[in-house]
Amino acid sequence: MQANRRDARRNDRAGWWCGILVLGLALAAAAPALAQKDGLYDEGRVLEHMRNECRGTPDCMTVESRDRRVAVGQSAIVRAHCPSSHPHVVGWDTEQSEHLAVTALPPKPQAGAAPDPEDAGSLVASRVLVGATNNGDKVGRVTLFVGCSAGVPKVTATLRHRSGVPSHHTTFSGGPR
């Protein structure tokens, strides 16, 4: 009798271990699929404001735009103006979601577009325009920071675009959009 009970307990334990093993194997097999579910980007990661808008220019002040949300698959133009006390643009920087690509737009209107009176006749426009495109699967956000100086700055470098290296690029294996 006792021997039968021991055998039954042993069989129960073996069944539990088998169940755990099968569950483990199933999880291991599903891991890539679970990682893919997150997509290429970590939509929660924010590229900090690195204070590149002034880069050592004396008497440079930072102007901040409003926080702008960009929907999935959409683009938005974000702008910030220098004040009349510091009318000259020195540079720009952002705080933005990893999955946004932000690009500087030219200060002059596009060919064929209606001229913008704010830029007309001004070689050094007092504002910065950037285009932000959402490449991820969730809403993203961007804030534009513009460096502004009272005098004409001596600039030898200008930022053209900023984006994040996708955090999941080492595990993501693609799939249809």
Partner: peptide
Amino acid sequence: QAPVAYTGWETQGWAYY
């Protein structure tokens, strides 16, 4: 040129003159 700061895993495009 003046130094430029980056966060980890970040890409920037620059024109230097």
